[in-house]
């Protein structure tokens, strides 16, 4: 994946030189290892700032809404599905976008690498299937790339972009032998009381910074329900009930739209796996309506269509 960088720069430069777009959204190196940051390029000569490696986990679809200029965006499988969702929800117009597809082999979980590594990490590089960590004391370590992927990437079955104008590289092979919902099933098998405790523990460290909401490409409401004061849906403090209400409602808002891009979990400063909530809704949508978000522009989402044979066992 590291080899994409040259191609990414080349494409960005060409698009800007030919004035096909006014701005390119990609990634540049962050100030810390494994923290690439989104980068907005307007001039062709700045294209060399762009990079692409296994630390581009932020979802760039998040930066497309509310803009007027013509934009080129680099999109992994999950980003492209979120772009489709944006187009369906009329948040962006297809003809104002140049989507450069990036076939993805998964992003590195920075927390996993950091927790496995003793000592201060100076830089993290990659080659074909190894992640190479250089320590500040001069030592270096190697991890198998597959072992340090983000949880959602390890289980991803849509690595290739679903919509694109051009591609950075050839499409990659999709994973087929993964069990996407093992963790959700585990929770489903608990009884009500266990589940309540489980989520209480899961969400207890939350500091209500709303980084998960801000990182999420689906969360584009002008005023989020947590910020509303008339009516005030939930308190602003650290009350456990308020924290849980926030996470539950956030998950509900993503029902049938979430592509499990993992941006929320990646952004969380205390490492809460809130994907356990959104994944349940994803699983339900898939099992009840055979629906996966953002796969096509031609179909209305499961939750805004009605079919006479929709499951309705829960209604008396």
């Amino acid at each position: 994946m590291i080899a994409y960088t040259d191609k990414v720069r080349q494409i960005a430069r060409r698009l800007l030189e030919e004035s096909r777009v006014e701005m390119v959204i990609g990634f540049r190196k962050g100030s810390q290892p494994m923290m690439n940051e989104p980068c907005f390029i307007r001039k062709a000569e700045d294209a060399d700032k762009l990079v692409w490696d296994g630390n581009c986990g932020i979802n760039l679809a998040n930066y497309l809404t509310g803009r007027n200029e013509k934009i080129a965006v680099f999109a992994k499988g999950c980003d492209s599905r979120n772009i489709v969702t944006h187009i369906i929800e009329n948040k962006v117009q297809r003809d104002k976008l140049v989507i450069v597809g990036v076939p993805c082999t998964g992003m590195i979980d920075k927390r996993l690498v950091a927790s496995r590594t003793e000592g201060e990490i100076e830089s993290v590089g990659e080659n074909a299937d190894k992640v190479v960590v250089k320590l500040s004391d001069g030592g270096s370590l190697e991890y198998d790339r597959r072992e340090v992927l983000q949880g959602n990437c390890a289980l991803c079955v849509h690595r290739n972009p679903v919509i694109y104008d051009e591609l950075v590289a050839d499409l990659v092979e999709e994973q087929t032998d993964v069990d996407r919902w093992a963790d959700v099933r585990e929770i489903e098998e608990m009884d009500t009381e266990q589940r309540r405790r489980f989520f209480e523990d899961l969400l207890a460290p939350c500091i209500r910074c709303y980084a998960c909401r801000n990182a999420c490409p689906l969360c584009y409401c002008p005023t989020c329900f947590v910020d509303e004061s008339k009516p005030q849906w939930l308190g602003k403090g650290q009350d456990q009930i308020d924290i849980q209400t926030f996470h539950f409602l956030r998950a509900f808002h993503c029902a049938g739209r979430c592509t499990d891009c993992g941006a929320c979990q990646r952004a969380c400063p205390v490492g809460i796996n809130m994907r356990l909530l959104t994944k349940k809704l994803e699983k339900d949508c898939f099992e009840m309506y055979r629906w996966e978000a953002g796969m096509t522009l031609d179909q209305r989402p499961a939750l805004d269509t009605y079919k006479p044979d929709d499951p309705q066992g829960f209604i008396k």
Partner: peptide, 16 residues
């Protein structure tokens, strides 16, 4: 909601 630990009988839906 059931998944989150709310008892199933605390939430009812019906069609009348």
């Amino acid at each position: 909601m059931e998944y989150m630990g709310v008892e199933p009988d605390r939430l009812h839906f019906s069609w009348i």
